[in-house]
Design a protein around this nucleic acid. Structure first.
Lengths: 175, 175
DNA sequence: GTCTATACCCGGATAGAC
DNA sequence: GTCTATCCGGGTATAGAC
């Protein structure tokens, strides 16, 4: 039984918004309860009156991130190229958020219901409902994105070309 | 100029080996200087007489990991399927090591020279030297692997089928 | 209901004694 | 080569002031 995410009070929403700003501006390591409290003008333990702990805080930020990502996907249109461009652009615009959303296990019980599914739906749609293809495509897109964010590709690598090569592969192998 | 990785003393190699065991058995969070020292029967500060810090320790473990991975790839033969199977198998056998090797930026200056390149070479070879294809294939393989390790796919997902679907895509799109 | 101070345990790391 | 003592920063539980 997942005791799914409780509603957030207005004050909690303010705290989550501040956490998102802190994350965007200074990265995941800067997102500590003490630094967040400092930004809010309060002390760290006070945050626990509004949110049960750091995991709940992160889950709230992640839920918001999925909603944003879903909106970006939906605005991009249904083509494979447009979706891929939107995927990469979202991650490059919010690299710290993208990492928080994708690194490590996901505490699904704590997420806003439906947020993850809404972000995933356009990927499934782009593969014509083929779930194996959707998973492979998602893996390709995430791999390209996280390796780029982490600086894993060689300095001169033409990532546009690698993206195109991968997408071409998925087109060509359509049943 | 990267002050490339210094030679490790025999005692340092013992410490690195213990770190690898600790990582394999209990995961990345358990790999602390104190826990490692405990396993070695000494105090944490003593480790700093042999290795300059935790980053150097991790880099040494990662270098060993690349060598092991390269050996596994070379033993698998040159086909795309065999390489993919070896890639996935290595990660599933050593999930904590795989995460350490692939998550976040890589301190290349600290790595054993050539270790990363040796592990990458079979992937390039499998795509006939096409570097764009090699990068796309690597991204696909890493994406599939890390999403599986992190439990991101739905419970019933047929990952063998998704792997096959992705690999088929790369075959079909060969120029 | 909101925030505070205090305290505990964990982590990496350093200085200096033996 | 190893120790002890110590510092700083993290998450967080508790108790209490307003």
């Amino acid at each position: 039984m997942g005791s799914s995410a409780p509603e957030l009070s207005p004050r909690a929403r303010e705290i989550v918004a501040a956490a998102r700003e802190l994350l965007d501006e200074e990265g995941r390591e800067a997102l500590s309860m003490r630094r967040l409290a400092e930004r809010l003008g309060i002390r760290a333990p006070s945050i626990y009156k509004h949110l049960p702990g750091k995991e709940a805080l992160e889950s709230a930020v992640i839920s918001d991130g999925f909603q944003e990502q879903a909106a970006a996907f939906e605005a991009a249109g249904g083509s494979l190229e447009a979706l891929a461009r939107a995927y990469r652009a979202f991650a490059l615009e919010h690299p710290h958020l993208y990492r928080l959303m994708t690194e490590g296990p996901l505490a699904r019980e704590r997420l806003a219901p439906g947020a993850e599914e809404r972000a995933a739906a356009p990927v499934v749609a782009a593969t014509g409902g083929d779930r194996d293809a959707a998973r492979a495509l998602w893996a390709f897109a995430h791999g390209m994105t996280i390796l780029e964010l982490d600086g894993r590709f060689p300095p001169g690598a033409d990532l546009d070309a690698a993206w195109a090569r991968g997408l071409r592969a998925f087109y060509a192998a359509r049943p």
